[in-house]
Design a protein around this nucleic acid. Structure first.
Lengths: 239, 239
DNA sequence: TCAAAAGTGTTTCGATTACACCCATGG
DNA sequence: CCATGGGTGTAATCGAAACACTTTTGA
C-alpha cells in the first residue's frame, strides 16, 4: 500500500485483469462453479469469480502472460490445479468496474473436483463451490461472464473431449454420462451414449469398481494417445 | 507528440489495442483480408492488420468500448463498413510488441466488398485487399491472429448464417456456394448445396439476374426475419 | 451455334433414434 | 432377498452423399 514507485504514461491506460470461471462437478453430480466472496469494496461481501490483475512491467520481459496470470490467480485464491484452461472472451465495457477502466480477460477452466481441496485464498477470501443453477447474482459483470462460459462449455463438450477433465482419472461410463447430462442439461439415452463413446475407441479399461453396493462398473481412462492418433486420421469427436 | 499531460499509476499498466481481421471476397472469389502497410517502426513497411489503441480515460465514462474501438479504427484506416463484427480472442504474450507490454483484443469482421471502397487511412497508410492464400508474413503476431481468424471463420460459417455478409445484398446461389468453397477450402456438390440452403427457407427471391452472358440466375436476399423466426422454433443453421 | 453458368431428382448408404430387460454386488 | 446402479442389441427412420444432363442467355 505504501509503494512509492509511480508509473507514468503519456496516454491513459486501462487496468487489465483475468477472471476465471472454474467448473467442477459436485458430489450430487451438479455442475458447479468456484466462487469467492469479496472481502473489499466494491461489491463487498458479494460472490465473484476468482481473478485479479495481470502482472505487467514497463521493462522487458514486460511481465507475465495472460494464461499464466489466470493460473497464478487460481492457485493463489483457491489452490486449484486446473485440468483444462482456455481463454473465453474479453470484457471491456467502460463502466463494468466503478473504480475505473478495467478490461478483463475471462478464462474457463475445468477441474477434477476430487483432486482439489478448496482452501481459503491468501487474501483469506472465502472460496466455495456453488451449483451453477443456484447462482443468482455476482459482482461486476461476472454473471454475464458466467453465462458466456456455460454456453461455451455446453457447445464445446459436444465436439471436444474436454468433459473428461471434470472427472477423476478413472471413471465409469455412467459417471461420464452424468457429466454430459449436467453440462448439457438434458437426459441422454444410456445405450446410445455408451455405444457412441465406446465406438470412438478413445477410452482404455482400468479394471472394475470396488466396494460398490451394486454391480461394479468398468472403470475407464481417457486415452490421449489413442485420441491424438485418431484425430490425425481424420477422426472428429462428436456427441 | 507534444502532449504534456502525464498519467500516473501506482502499478505499471499495459497498453490495450484492437486488431481487426477483415474478410472480404475479391472479384476472383478468393477469400481476402484487408491489410495496411506500416508507415512507422517497428515493422516499418511490413503488412499488418488494421488496428490501434483503445481510447481510455481515467475519469468516467472511462473511454470507449472494445468493439467501438474496433469499428472506429476500421473506419479511420480503411473507410470500411462492417457487416458483421465479433470478438475473436485476446493476444497478450509479453514479448509480442517490442515497444512494451501491449495486449491486443482481436476482432473478426466480414464485409460486402462491393459496398466498400478502400481508401488510404488518415495516417495515409496504404490499405489493400490481399488474398488470404498470398499472405506470407505480417508484423507482430498478426500472422497468428490471422490463423485463428481463418479457423474461426471456417468453423462458424458452417453453423451460423454469416457467410451472407461477404456478399452483396442480392446474390445467386452460385455466388453463395463460391463463398463457402472459398472459406472452407473444399468444393461442394452443387445440387446438395442448393437444396440444403433452399430447404432452410431463409432466403427470399429477388428477381433474375440481368445482362449475364449466360442463363440468368435467381437472385436471393438473406431473410433475417424468417431466420429469426425459425431459430425461435428450434431451427439450427448447419452446412 | 457456341460458350458459360443455371437449374433440377433420385437412389444409396450410413448414422441416429427409440426402446426394456437381466446382472452383480453389499447390506 | 432386495435395492441399487451396471450392462446389453435390434429395428426403423432420417439425413447425407453421390451422381449427369438440360436450359437459357448473349455474343
Amino acid at each position: 500500500v505504501t509503494n512509492t514507485k509511480i508509473h507514468r504514461y503519456k496516454y491513459p491506460r486501462p487496468s487489465v485483469t483475468v477472471d476465471c470461471v472454474l467448473f467442477g462437478i459436485n458430489p450430487k453430480s451438479d455442475l458447479s462453479v468456484l466462487l469467492i466472496r469479496r472481502r473489499d469494496s466494491p461489491f463487498q461481501g458479494a460472490w465473484a469469480l476468482p481473478g485479479g490483475f495481470v502482472n505487467v512491467s514497463d521493462t522487458p520481459p514486460y511481465g507475465e502472460g495472460l494464461e499464466d496470470a489466470a493460473r497464478r490467480e487460481l492457485e493463489e485464491e483457491t489452490g486449484a490445479k486446473v485440468a483444462h484452461l482456455e481463454q473465453l472472451s474479453t470484457f471491456g465495457t467502460p463502466d463494468r468496474d466503478p473504480r475505473g477502466r478495467v478490461i478483463s480477460v475471462a478464462y474457463m477452466g475445468l477441474v477434477r473436483t476430487t483432486d482439489h481441496v478448496v482452501q481459503g485464498g491468501d487474501d483469506a477470501a472465502e472460496a466455495e463451490w456453488i451449483a451453477e443453477t443456484d447462482i443468482v447474482t455476482l459482482a461486476f459483470d461476472h454473471k454475464e461472464i458466467l453465462r458466456v462460459a456455460c454456453e461455451r462449455l455446453a457447445a464445446k463438450v459436444r465436439y471436444a473431449p474436454i468433459g473428461f477433465n471434470l472427472l477423476p482419472k478413472e471413471f465409469t461410463l455412467s459417471d461420464l454420462q452424468r457429466v454430459y447430462e449436467a453440462v448439457l442439461r438434458e437426459p441422454l439415452d444410456k445405450r446410445n451414449f455408451r455405444s457412441r463413446i465406446l465406438a470412438m475407441k478413445i477410452l482404455q479399461e482400468a479394471g472394475l469398481q470396488k466396494g460398490t453396493r451394486h454391480r461394479p462398473g468398468m472403470l475407464y481412462r481417457f486415452d490421449k494417445r489413442a485420441y491424438d492418433t485418431a484425430v490425425r486420421d481424420g477422426f472428429h469427436f462428436e456427441i
